[in-house]
């Protein structure tokens, strides 16, 4: 059986713990609010670099991309979101060459798994941070990633570097 002093001690320790709880919520009342009011804070909005919002193909200032139309992304895509349509052209010295015609990406079926970006051998595609993708019809979610009239970027800088390295080794 509990004694009367235990009863009192229980009661006062209970009151003390209640008061400490109240003091914590009191402090919480005056903390800075964490809510971000989205459409108003567009200018200051910070979105993590790692956020995968939409697949894009970066083009440089000469309207050139790095996609060789190898189709590895299409093979790796788990739900057929990517469709790489290539065409064959002839170069000046008569060689037949595969070239990217249209890179079709369906945002509506994309699960943002990132497998296409990981497996791309020439780093031609990346995920961008542009997350405002709402449209009124589903057709608008099917996008062509390569721009009109864009070409494959020549790998000159890399070749050049290789030549210089050879020269260096010869002189040495």
């Amino acid at each position: 059986m509990r004694t009367f002093s235990e009863y009192l001690r229980d009661m006062f320790s209970g009151i003390r713990s209640l008061l400490s709880g109240l003091s914590i919520t009191w402090k919480e009342l005056w903390t800075k609010k964490v809510t971000r009011q989205y459409p108003e804070n567009r200018d200051t909005l910070v979105i993590s670099e790692r956020f995968r919002a939409e697949l894009v193909m970066p083009h440089d200032e000469n309207n050139e991309h790095a996609c060789t139309a190898c189709g590895i992304c299409q093979i790796n895509c788990p739900n057929g979101t990517i469709n790489v349509i290539s065409r064959t052209t002839e170069t000046e010295d008569g060689k037949k060459k595969k070239e990217l015609d249209r890179y079709v990406y369906n945002l509506g079926t994309c699960t943002f798994c990132n497998l296409c970006v990981i497996t791309c051998p020439s780093d031609a595609i990346v995920f961008s941070n542009n997350f405002e993708n709402a449209t009124f019809t589903r057709n608008k979610l099917v996008k062509q990633l390569n721009h009109e009239g864009s070409r494959l970027r020549e790998k000159k800088p890399i070749k050049k570097a290789g030549n210089e390295a050879e020269k260096d080794s010869q002189t040495a």
Partner: peptide, 11 residues
């Protein structure tokens, strides 16, 4: 309630 939970509440 919102202020106690560090939110803004209806706005």
């Amino acid at each position: 309630t919102a202020f106690f939970q560090a939110r803004i509440g209806p706005n």
